[in-house]
Design a protein around this nucleic acid. Structure first.
Lengths: 221, 221
DNA sequence: CGCCCTGTTGAACTCTTTCAAAAAATGTGG
DNA sequence: CCACATTTTTTGAAAGAGTTCAACAGGGCG
């Protein structure tokens, strides 16, 4: 882990974070060289960041090295604010970048005190954001089979792992969710069926049983 | 526009919206039939929604009909909360769905409304979410050329429409942002150059001039 | 000058889409 | 309950967009 409190400086008056947090907040600046990591996916989210100058990329990776960059952050952009205590993606300097760093807990404490209620609303929005981040990785970097496996696991989890899963949506809806055509979705279903990862239950093709969640997780990862 | 205050009912105790808003908030329920639109992209965001039962899809569309579904919302999920006054996507019933509807303004009023104009944390997170929603449409439904045009317009705007645009990132970064390979990005650059939509400036291929923003917008739309 | 990094271009290949047809499921009316 | 129409899903074959593998070109820097 990097030591981040190298350059302690007075927060700029116009900085969003500084404005949000007020002057009493611990706030320092650090300069990252090209390619340096600001934080990694899975690390504890101790700080919130705002760019003073330079460019930062935030991204997720699949285990085989496929990478999906969520955003390029330029001057004044904020990033790294998490709902939970863990960073959901990695942040790296694209160019040399000067970054303003604020303690997450002190920031959130201040917000909670000053604007009670906004914190819980913030939670809801952050949850949507989290879903969107995962979905960008899926859309940008997964194959048709990966996508369908991920979709089935998502539905399985949200429906609380039922024995027989009833999908409320048709193949076109699934396709438009996964960035595919309905024919490709149908073919992917057939492959998973032939490979014994699922079977259809009853007359309809919308009721199905996941036979091998492990294998689906493998595809998704 | 639909009349939504059909069934006025006491908010469920465990509902997120009710919990957020408190019991004094105007809160009603409405049942949407399969295929019905809850709200459309671009409409005024008067209400916030939470699902009681059924499934709702939220999506964006390109002008030629390509559709990208952001999320399927199931029981208890909240959706439709916007930062600004306009809905950024469309919401429709996948199945018959019962939805709890709350007035946005009364919800936000209750949640200690901050003074207008000042940056809020919620604003910052919502901006990230908004970007993610647009990017999902790009990743799921746009061609390589569309994607590069969208990227260039995004950078152009964020760099305040400079004459000569200096990209801080290399082709691989752009590729990983757009869900492409670096070779495809390079080819797309060459096509846009040959079609006189941009030209490279100076020695490097990271400095460029947008020659026809209109045409790029056309590609992106 | 030569090396490394970044970017471009070509050719073969692969995955997904498109177009087409048939099969399966759902709904309707007698 | 059955016949018929409609919608949804599956499957096949051909076409297309993007990837992969490979070679090369140009600039920056020791």
């Amino acid at each position: 882990m990097l030591i981040r409190t190298t350059t302690v400086s007075r927060p700029a008056v116009d900085g969003q974070l500084a404005a949000l947090a007020g002057q009493q907040i611990i706030c320092s600046e650090f300069t990252y060289r090209r390619g340096m990591e600001v934080f990694g996916e899975g690390e504890e989210a101790e700080y919130v960041y705002q760019i003073v100058s330079g460019t930062i990329r935030t991204y997720k990776m699949l285990c085989d090295g496929r990478r999906q960059i969520n955003s390029f952050h330029l001057a004044d952009d904020m990033f790294g604010l998490e709902n939970g205590i863990i960073h959901r993606f990695t942040a790296e300097a694209v160019t040399q970048a000067k970054v303003r760093i604020t303690s997450r807990s002190s920031l959130l404490d201040t917000i909670a005190q000053r604007e009670p209620g906004q914190a819980s609303l913030l939670n809801l929005v952050t949850r949507n954001l989290q879903h969107a981040e995962n979905h960008m990785l899926l859309l940008g970097r997964k194959t048709a089979l990966d996508k369908l496996a991920a979709f089935l696991l998502e539905m399985d989890e949200r429906l609380a792992h039922p024995n027989v899963m009833s999908l409320p949506m048709n193949r076109r809806d699934i396709a438009d969710y996964l960035g595919l055509t309905l024919e490709t979705v149908s073919r992917a279903f057939s492959i998973l069926r032939d490979d014994k990862m699922l079977r259809f239950d009853g007359q309809t093709q919308r009721q199905l049983v996941l036979l091998d969640r492990e294998a689906l997780v493998q595809l998704d990862a």
